[in-house]
């Protein structure tokens, strides 16, 4: 039954076409064309123009933003370079300052050391001199006693009669 249907169906379709109904041209054609042209006009107003404007504006915006961002990036890079240069000079200056300060400090330290050593030397010399003076004074004080003591020793050893 079913295969018979398909066959009949095909022949039916052909038969319908032969009646001219499938290629049935009438006033639908021009009216459809007019309708389509009107649709184009309306969609142009409602759809293409406003949304196209949105797309163009966004393109413009993105391009502008991109340009702006690029300019800013360049600016930032320039600033970075400037700051880096400044940083380098500052670092160099700082190192120079440190070097001079170190040298100064060393100089001062050396000077002070020398001074202190001199002072210490002087004090030592002074002390030595004092010691020498006292020694001499002591020797001078002891000199007369030496006489008496040696006389006494003599007296003790030889007896009083002989010493006379």
């Amino acid at each position: 039954m079913i295969p018979q249907w398909t066959l009949l169906l095909a022949t039916a379709a052909v038969e319908e076409a032969e009646k001219g109904k499938l290629f049935d041209f009438d006033a639908t054609l021009p009216l459809m064309a007019i309708q389509f042209v009107i649709l184009v006009a309306i969609l142009n107003k409602l759809f293409y123009t406003p949304l196209g404007k949105v797309l163009d504006d966004r393109d413009e915006y993105i391009r502008g933003g991109l340009g702006n961002a690029k300019a800013r990036l360049a600016e930032a890079e320039e600033l970075t370079k400037k700051y880096e240069a400044e940083l380098a000079t500052t670092r160099r200056e700082a190192q120079a300052v440190i070097a001079t300060a170190k040298a100064e400090a060393q100089q001062i330290a050396a000077g002070q050391l020398a001074e202190t050593q001199q002072a210490a030397q002087a004090q030592r010399e002074q002390a030595q001199q004092e010691i020498d003076k006292q020694k001499q004074a002591a020797f001078a004080a002891l000199e007369p006693q030496v006489e008496a003591l040696s006389h006494q020793i003599l007296t003790k050893l030889l007896g009083a009669e002989l010493v006379k």
Binding site: F23, D26, T28, L29, P30, M32, A33, F36, V37
Partner: peptide, 12 residues
């Protein structure tokens, strides 16, 4: 699906 429509569009 109708030949009138497609011919209209093609002629336009």
């Amino acid at each position: 699906n109708d030949i009138n429509t497609t011919v209209a569009l093609a002629l336009l």
